[in-house]
Design a protein around this nucleic acid. Sequence first.
RNA 1: GGAGAGGUGGCAGAGUGGUCGAAUGCGCCGGACUCGAAAUCCGGUUCAGUGCUUGCACUGACGCGGGUUCGAAUCCCGCCCUUUCCGCCA
Length: 427
Amino acid sequence: MLDIQLLRKDLAGVAQRLASRGVTLDTARIEALEAERKEIQVRTQELQARRNQLSKQIGMAKGKGEDAGELMAQVGGLGDDLKTAETRLAGIQEDLSGLLMTIPNLPHETVPVGRDEKDNEEIRRVGTPRAFPYQPLDHVDIGENLDLLDFPTAVKITTSRFVLMRGQLARMHRALAQFMLDVHSREHGYEEVYVPYLVNADSMRGTGQLPKFEEDLFKLSNGMYLIPTAEVPVTNIVRDEIIPADNLPIKLVAHTPCFRSEAGSYGKDTRGMIRQHQFDKVEMVQFVKPEDSYAALEELTGHAEDILQRLDLPYRVVALCSGDLGFSAAKTYDLEVWLPGQDTYREISSCSNFEAFQARRMQARYRTDNEGKPGKPELIHTLNGSGLAVGRALVAVLENYQNPDGSVTVPDVLRPYMGGLDRIAKE
RNA sequence: GGAGAGGUGGCAGAGUGGUCGAAUGCGCCGGACUCGAAAUCCGGUUCAGUGCUUGCACUGACGCGGGUUCGAAUCCCGCCCUUUCCGCCA
């Protein structure tokens, strides 16, 4: 959510910055609503003040045993006007906040301006894709040849876009998550948290999934939602909280399944594990002071990169352009891992600074003490990034570590998590 | 799932229709006292929002949402949550 004050002060400027995202702001409607709001709010508050004043006098009169009939008649005359004004004000404020909730974040000044993913800016490449003397297989062929990856059975159990993994492959999937969680919690300074996988609508609004993106979510009959990312439960930990400044930064990491309906992506990545309704992810979340958030974004992105480097997977870092930015993000780096089976880089992590956008929706604030005097609560900045998507990391390992005989070498860093196993081969 | 109790400031806890954003205690901050500290005493200590003459005024908030009333923390209805007992259960 943007600062309503900013919209009042510089509506044209906001509209201009949103235009770089390809979003057209209905400035005329906002101006009209604002003008109406101001008029009605002043009127409402005046009427309320008058009523409060008279009611207080009635109380005093009755306390002294005097007749309050005259006063009561006076205040009674306000009743209808007041009710009308209050109702209108509530309506306008609902319209205004409803509109505000659907406006995306402003891109940071360092975000490259562009239309779509073609305009994203490659920042760096790390690692060299391995040269294969033969046509490398993709993860589906590798996994199915090993009898460890089973899509048809998952379809039988549930439907398409789900997967069944078996044996050492399921184990490697678990090993990847454990490895990532260990590195972030032991070496990068994150506190590990275990969180609910079902959340209420307030939490979804807090991080920005609602009200605009309900169709991407799985909703339960009792009104709760399956989380599409750990970002939602983890970030909402600080909803409606005022954090002492000394406690910042707060860095949390969680491993959760993620559920996405993938509505509107029919025909996209239908083969394999790239785009599933259910996948696991290790997610890093940071709560920081505003002045620290861009340094934190670099740091957090580095933490995700560290996992790729330890797995010795080639990747590149891409700065998303304004048109490709997610709804709540002010700036995002995507990490794209090299997939030899597809002969391309594919997204495996997305690291974003949301500045105060989520914090404002959540009323997540911090307070600084200036020489003993408590300062005013100010909005924190929130960040998060995948560290990494576990399913896609497994895909990357399968494709990058495949051998001509159909086996897959286990990356060094995962061996301790797999009982020392050095390769996965057909039984 | 059944029956009961309850949700008030950072915490504890009063308040059951009227100068109540809310007693009192604890905590916290400042000051006095002290060589210093403790004790004691004095003062302060929620958040959101609006207007403009930017320092003041006003509005809203006692779990959430409605209602009654001139006036609601207090009465009524619905929901959520906590808790006790019983039942069930990994």
